[in-house]
């Protein structure tokens, strides 16, 4: 068989195989390097003192507890707003909208939103939430900016799962005399919970990694606050703190410690997303 193929064709196959081999190995070792390097450099500097205190000039120590809490506050606040908005938009698109032009308009808008760079969100968020609405530089303003950013993600995942709700469920409910709202509330929404969960996980991952949009909306402060105080004050999330310590202060040990924490969280969120995807797939197949 091999004799049938000319030398040129064999050389072509060999060259393509080599290129593929090099590319895959490069990609794989890149991921491995990043993971191992960041963990190795950051892990030794993650101490209990770092995790449990706030920065203190008196004792000249740095702690990132405020940054951890700020990140949690921002995630909670953003999800509280983005989930109803995103799911509501998805319900409108799949259950109500009858005008094709309107559907196209909304989908086009969502596509445009997901292409806008985060620095532009940060700028408009600063102008609109911080200045026009008077929220000042605060975690709330940052969270609201992130709401707009994550809206397309949540809308799309909710839409996908609404599409998997069998039409016969709706028809059955209508046949029993239920109104549209009742059908949505009792039949459609409970069945799109997997889309909501997936959207949640994706959004958390994105919020965790976001920095450019928060720089000018949520600010730099490292103060310990509870969630209510926290949202109305300026505060740095973990990513912004990393940027601050690396670029402005040159404190690379702390920066790498934060990077290692972010890396671990990213791995966890990816595993969670993969697990959720598999779980829902199996559930839907039954």
């Amino acid at each position: 068989m091999k004799g049938d193929i000319s030398g040129r064709r064999r050389a072509y196959a060999l060259a393509m195989k080599a290129l593929m081999g090099i590319s895959v190995i490069l990609t794989a070792s890149l991921v491995a390097f990043l993971l191992i390097y960041v963990l190795a450099k950051g892990f030794p500097h993650i101490t209990w003192q770092l995790l449990s205190t706030k920065p203190s000039y008196l004792s000249d120590t740095v702690g990132i507890l405020p940054d951890i809490l700020n990140t949690v506050y921002v995630i909670i606040a953003a999800l509280v707003f983005v989930l109803p908005l995103g799911v509501g938009a998805a319900v409108y698109l799949t259950e109500y909208a009858s005008n094709k032009k309107v559907v196209e308009l909304i989908e086009y808008a969502a596509e445009t939103l997901s292409g806008i760079p985060s620095i532009i969100y940060g700028l408009v968020g600063m102008l609109f939430f911080c200045e026009f609405l008077g929220f000042q530089t605060s975690l709330l303003a940052g969270s609201l900016t992130l709401v707009i950013m994550n809206l397309p993600t949540v809308m799309r995942t909710a839409q996908e799962s609404l599409k998997t709700v069998p039409q016969s469920y709706r028809e059955g409910a209508f046949g029993l005399g239920a109104g549209k709202w009742r059908v949505i509330r009792t039949v459609v929404l409970p069945n799109c919970i997997d889309g909501v969960v997936t959207g949640c996980i994706l959004s958390i991952g994105r919020i965790l990694g976001e920095s450019a949009a928060l720089l000018f909306t949520a600010g730099f402060a490292h103060e310990l606050n509870n969630i209510v105080e926290g949202l109305s004050h300026a505060g740095a999330t973990l990513t912004v703190a990393l940027y601050f310590y690396a670029k402005e202060e040159g404190e690379f040990e702390i920066a790498f410690a934060i990077a290692a924490i972010l890396m671990i969280l990213t791995v966890l969120i990816n595993l969670l997303a993969a697990f959720a995807g598999k779980y829902f797939k199996r559930k839907n197949n039954i």
């Binding site: 890149l30 993971l35 990694g209 890396m263």
Partner: peptide, 12 residues
Amino acid sequence: AVSLLAGIPSVV
């Protein structure tokens, strides 16, 4: 692995 690469924050 590629998903992980996509999820790593840009500051890292």
